[in-house]
């Protein structure tokens, strides 16, 4: 990536064309070649991600129930915020290219700074999400030991710390404990709710339960899970971490190159005649944005 953009920055013999490498005739030719190069590079990026999209499609086609269930673990509002952040950073990046083309140096540096900050915000939100998964044990298949149900509900929330069932961890894939959860957790469950009071569950439990339901209703009330917890839920998290992880690495790489061109911009290297690296880095950043535009509905908005 950086190498592509750097190409135009070579020593040469053309006196008046500061950034024209020796084997090009005109800046236009050099720019067009760089542009074709970066588009080919973006092609390879898209094909790189296509492998993960292929894995996603295959598993979603074969196990739709896994995706419908497991995505409830994700917080779609955080995903939506990140989408807006990235779209905004795309705007500032495209604006930055315009500023570079028009020779507005200060504006360019500011806009690149905002883009960089947006990348930072995105990664921070991502960090919060990953930390959440970490603490809930919902990691990729090899490390998949969930001890909460979707919505961040733990067994202790429901039964209290001293509850009889609290001794055993609550796992979505475990059918025995699942049965205990069916009624209280999911509105649409066919299992009748146990009566409260002396004959049924304790008043404290019911109180906790309604608090928890409120909690759930904030997160996801549109389509609560009604069926049994599906097998192979771990695959969803593998795909989630691979897709967002690879995307996150691309965001970090993008931030690095944005930082680099920001440094160069502050030295006043870009202007109407030479803004190739800004444009090329911008194209890369937009592709990172596009990947997220697809990841967001595919991972967070399943219903």
């Amino acid at each position: 990536m950086t190498t592509v953009a750097q190409e135009s920055h070579e020593p040469h013999e053309h006196g008046n064309e500061e950034h024209l490498a020796h084997h090009w005739d005109t800046p236009k030719q050099q720019f067009d070649a760089g542009k074709l190069g970066i588009w080919l590079f973006l092609t390879t990026e898209i094909l790189l991600f296509s492998g993960l999209f292929c894995a996603y499609s295959v598993y979603r086609a074969n196990h739709p129930e896994v995706f419908e269930y497991a995505h409830l673990y994700l917080n779609k509002w955080l995903g939506a915020v990140n989408t807006i952040v990235l779209i905004f950073s795309s705007l500032t990046m495209a604006w930055g290219v315009r500023a570079a083309q028009l020779g507005q140096k200060k504006l360019l540096v500011t806009l690149l700074g905002i883009t960089l900050a947006c990348g930072g915000v995105f990664m921070c939100v991502k960090f919060v999400e990953y930390k959440d998964k970490w603490s809930h044990g919902t990691l990729w298949a090899g490390e998949y030991h969930p001890h909460v149900l979707p919505g961040g509900v733990t067994k202790a929330d429901v039964f209290g710390p001293g509850g009889a069932a609290a001794a055993t961890p609550t796992l979505p894939n475990a059918p025995a404990t699942q049965k205990a959860f069916d009624g209280p957790i999911f509105e649409g469950s066919t299992v009748a709710r146990a009566p409260a009071g002396p004959a049924g569950l304790s008043a404290a439990w019911v109180e906790k339960e309604s608090a928890r339901e409120e909690h759930l209703s904030v997160r996801d009330t549109e389509r609560p899970w009604t069926g049994p917890v599906p097998k192979n839920t771990q695959i969803f998290f593998s795909i989630y971490f691979l897709m967002t992880g690879l995307h996150g690495l691309h965001v970090l790489a993008g931030m690095a190159v944005i930082g680099w061109i920001m440094l160069r911009a502050s030295r006043g290297e870009f202007g109407p005649k030479y803004f190739n690296p800004v444009d090329f880095v911008g194209l890369y950043w937009h592709v990172v944005d596009i990947v997220w535009i697809f990841l967001f509905p595919l991972l967070y908005l399943i219903h």
């Binding site: 894995a55 990729w140 298949a141 090899g142 097998k231 695959i235 593998s238 971490f241 691979l242």
Partner: peptide, 14 residues
């Protein structure tokens, strides 16, 4: 390294 299971049938992979 992580055991993501995409290709490993032991984890439901293909």
């Amino acid at each position: 390294t992580l055991k993501v299971g995409i290709f490993n049938p032991a984890y439901g992979g293909d």
